[in-house]
Design a protein around this nucleic acid. Structure first.
Lengths: 246, 246
DNA sequence: GAGGCGGTGACAGGTTCCCGAAAGGGTTTC
DNA sequence: GAAACCCTTTCGGGAACCTGTCACCGCCTC
């Protein structure tokens, strides 16, 4: 089932209409708070834990529909936590958080069971998108919620990462894709450069806000080139996307 | 739920009909008083605090629907206050106040959870508008309150910053937009130049009052040009906006 | 008809935005 | 392991745009 959130976007709901529940496990408070805020904003119900023991306990009574799990916890190994989680909740999908340089064989095979992972530092759009994918595929949310965003004659498929305008396929780089996804998930709403930076770039990105301008210009070249423009600047406010015919 | 206030404007209310509650936190008394007055005028119930400790205490018993939080407090770091606030009130949206030149990395990630910020010096219209947006989106107020102001055949969308008259789209600059928003939120009421200056321009604006006349003339050119005028002068009193056919 | 108020053109200064160029880092290919 | 390639980011110039001041004129009020 999908419905329209207070934000005006469609959100995932369980078949019974109650909000999706997500458990966030990380030992860094700043990370759990960042994630909790972002995921709550999706309309999901969030609990967090700071270590493996707490994670198992919380999982037992909270019965989440998905888990975000840092592989690096103070009290026990990520794989151990995973094992115990699986005993409690055999079918719950898990999104792993790993350090960028964490050896790949530690996480090799983890996605085999339908789980997924992202490396730190991550962007919130990425985490939200992967989590949505996991929940959708797990069947915890209604299947009718599909993965295609449509704004005017522009479509973006979150599953296949395919983008097309007026039937014509468009190739985007990873960053361009995430930027466009964020815009399209908030159509007709002005998004400030700060908001865009906060959602699309990694939380530790220290660079200039003008990467946003640059990537907007890339998107325009690929999406608006020679057509009625869909990406609009609101000077002093931000950017927004809307169907061309209006 | 929306209702009509004594001032004749529609205002946000909680689902149970009680007024929205807002906590204002700033160490400068002049700022908390300025904001308290402006927000009370919106029909909201206001409490204020001058430091982080007071903020947490007040939040605990006042249970606000939104918080205005200066990032620069005497006793503790803004992020610390935020963390403790979140523990008390996980879902309350926060509007941050930051110095214009406060480096962007201090506020990085803050908009991610759906929170927002304005830089000092701010205009009251801006603060009120953002706060309304936050409260609306948080679901604390009734969903029916939407983001579109309508006066006659003139509409203004606070989300997309779109303005149109008789279906025809009109492009406004940021200042023009805030001025029109203020007029449209007070239709059929004369607003003095002093009131307009106080609400639409920053509280430290030192310039001539004739910027108001200037911007009124800009608005007329864009909104009333070649049409039945909606913006009217009340000589010696101020300006007002009303539907053309009356 | 004098004085005050309001409207608007012209303009300067500042800000914001766009995008070319190029560097740095990572990945793929051979 | 080197070369080639792609992606991301920084830098910076130039253009476009926005804001507010000043000056002048016209209209309203008394």
């Amino acid at each position: 089932m999908t419905t329209t959130s207070p934000q005006g976007r469609t959100e995932l709901l369980r078949p019974d209409g109650s909000p999706v529940r997500v458990l966030v496990v990380d030992d860094e408070l700043s990370i759990t708070e960042l994630l909790s805020m972002a995921l709550r904003y999706e309309g999901w119900q969030i609990r967090s834990a700071g270590d493996g023991t707490g994670a198992i306990q919380t999982a037992r009574e909270f019965r989440p529909d998905a888990v975000v799990l840092d592989m690096m916890l103070p009290d026990m190994d990520g794989l151990t936590v995973l094992g115990r989680l699986r005993r409690e909740l055999p079918d719950v999908p898990v999104l792993f958080l790993t350090a960028k340089d964490a050896v790949e064989d530690r996480i090799a095979g983890l996605t085999a069971g339908g789980d997924d992972y992202v490396t730190k530092p991550f962007s919130l759009e990425e985490v939200v998108a992967r989590l949505r994918g996991l929940i959708r595929r797990s069947g915890a949310a209604d299947r009718r919620s599909d993965s295609v965003l449509v704004v005017g004659d522009l479509t973006l498929d979150e599953d296949s990462h395919e983008v097309s305008r007026a039937g014509e396929s468009i190739h985007l780089t990873a960053t361009e894709f995430e930027l466009l996804r964020f815009l399209m998930r908030n159509p007709r709403r002005v998004l400030s450069k700060a908001q865009i930076l906060d959602r699309v770039w990694s939380y530790d990105f220290g660079g200039q806000a003008n990467v946003v301008e640059l990537y907007i210009s890339y998107l325009r070249r690929k999406i608006d080139a020679g057509r009625e423009p869909m990406i609009h600047t609101r000077r002093g406010a931000g950017y927004l996307i809307k169907p061309a015919a209006s």
